[in-house]
Every structure is written in structure tokens, then in C-alpha cells.
Measured scan of single mutants.
Amino acid sequence: MTEYKLVVVGAGGVGKSALTIQLIQNHFVDEYDPTIEDSYRKQVVIDGETCLLDILDTAGQEEYSAMRDQYMRTGEGFLCVFAINNTKSFEDIHHYREQIKRVKDSEDVPMVLVGNKCDLPSRTVDTKQAQDLARSYGIPFIETSAKTRQGVDDAFYTLVREIRKHKEKMSKDGKKKKKKSKTKCVIM
């Protein structure tokens, strides 16, 4: 069974824990209790493949930012979460993405942009803004509501699919490099 290491990042209060708990335990946590770091595991079937999701729910508070490099190193894919009623959390996505790329030393890291709290009427981040940002990053965008469960499975499952595509691409690139290195030079 394939294991996928997913990391949920975003500013404090955007609903990272609520999304994760909704996926794992099928219930909505409405009281806000700032996370330092929590880890969850769940076995699911995605596109006919049974897999184990190892999900790291991270601290959004700035005082825990020193811990970010460590979990970013171990993560295979990242859910970059903002709240649709919090423009600052949307603007912060850029910083999370840049930090992930720096730590992973790669421009090509599996990510999904997630606009959470889409059940709320007080939207300050337009869907088109988020779609445009995701398009500019070359990553999928999904709106979710941890409260109603809308888009929750889709967000995590899409990230797994992005990781699969990335692994497939990397193995193809690896095979191309191996083929090239088999060419021999004969000096007579």
C-alpha cells in the first residue's frame, strides 16, 4: 500500500485542523484551538488504489514558523489553505509557496490551493482571484467548507493525484537520464 505524506499549511484560523478532522473523523470542530502540530493517518481508496494518507496539520501562528522547514522537508505534497473571508490569509499563500519551493529546492512541488469556509456569506476573496492565482502557479484550486464537508475529500484526493503525477514524471525523467548515460565512448 502506497503511503502519501501530505502537509496542510496556511495562516492561523483558516480551518486547516477543521478540514483535516472532517476528512479523518467526519465531524466539524467549530471551536478554535490553535494547533502546534498534529499528525493523522487514514486509509482510503483513490482511483481504485488503496493508500495510506499521513497528514500533518501544522501551526499557522507566526511564533511556530521555525518548525516549518522541518515538516516541509518531509512532506510530499501540500494543501495551501486560505479562508475566503480573510484576504490576508490569501496573500500569505505566496509566502508559504515560496518557502516550500526553497526548502524542497524545487520549482515543481505537488500543491493544491484550497479556499476554505465557502459556506460563509462574508467572502472577501473572489473565486476568480483564487483561480487566477492557482493557474499562475500551475496547481489545482478547490473551494471547501469544513463545516458542510463540501470539497473536503476532493481537496485531499486531488493532492494525492498531483503527487502521483509528480512521481510518474520524475521516474520518466530518471529513465531518460539513465538511457543517456548508457551511451559509451570508444577510443581507438
Rank of each mutant, 00 (worst) to 15 (best):
Y64L: 08
A66R: 05
N86C: 04
S65F: 05
F82T: 09
Q99I: 13
L120K: 08
N86I: 02
V112N: 00
D126Y: 08
D105M: 11
M72Q: 06
F78D: 00
R102Q: 06
Y96T: 05
A83H: 09
F90G: 04
N86K: 04
M67Y: 07
T124Y: 09
C80L: 14
S122K: 08
V114G: 01
F90V: 10
G75E: 04
E76C: 14
S106M: 13
E98N: 04
A66D: 12
K117T: 14
F82I: 07
M111V: 06
V109E: 02
M67Q: 12
V125H: 09
R102K: 09
I84E: 15
R97W: 15
N86Q: 05
K101D: 03
G77F: 11
E107V: 11
E63M: 03
D108E: 08
V109G: 02
Y71V: 12
E91P: 03
V103N: 06
V109K: 02
S106L: 11
R102Y: 03
D105P: 06
S122Y: 10
T124L: 08
C118R: 05
A83G: 14
R102S: 06
V81N: 03
R68H: 13
R68M: 10
M72V: 09
F90N: 04
S122C: 09
C118G: 10
C80D: 01
V114Q: 01
D108M: 05
E91C: 03
E91A: 05
D119H: 05
R97V: 15
V125K: 08
K104W: 13
C80G: 03
L79E: 00
H95M: 03
R102I: 05
S122G: 13
E63A: 04
D105E: 12
G75N: 04
R73N: 12
C118Q: 07
L79P: 01
V81L: 10
R102W: 04
Y64I: 08
D69K: 03
R102D: 04
M67T: 12
R68G: 14
E107I: 13
V103C: 10
R68Q: 15
S65I: 06
Y71L: 14
E91Y: 04
F90W: 12
R68W: 06
L113D: 00
Q70L: 05
Y71E: 14
I100V: 07
I84P: 15
D105I: 03
G115V: 10
Y71T: 13
V81K: 00
G115Q: 05
M72E: 08
P121C: 07
N116V: 15
G115N: 04
L79S: 00
Y96V: 15
R68L: 08
S106D: 13
V112P: 00
Y71A: 11
V112T: 02
N86A: 05
A83D: 15
D126T: 07
V81S: 04
R102H: 09
P110C: 03
E63C: 03
D92A: 12
S89V: 07
L113N: 01
G115W: 07
E76N: 07
L113V: 07
M72R: 03
L113M: 10
M72A: 07
D119F: 03
M111T: 02
Y96R: 02
P110M: 02
E98D: 06
V112I: 10
D105Y: 03
G77N: 00
V81Q: 04
Y64P: 12
D126L: 06
S65V: 07
V109C: 06
A66C: 11
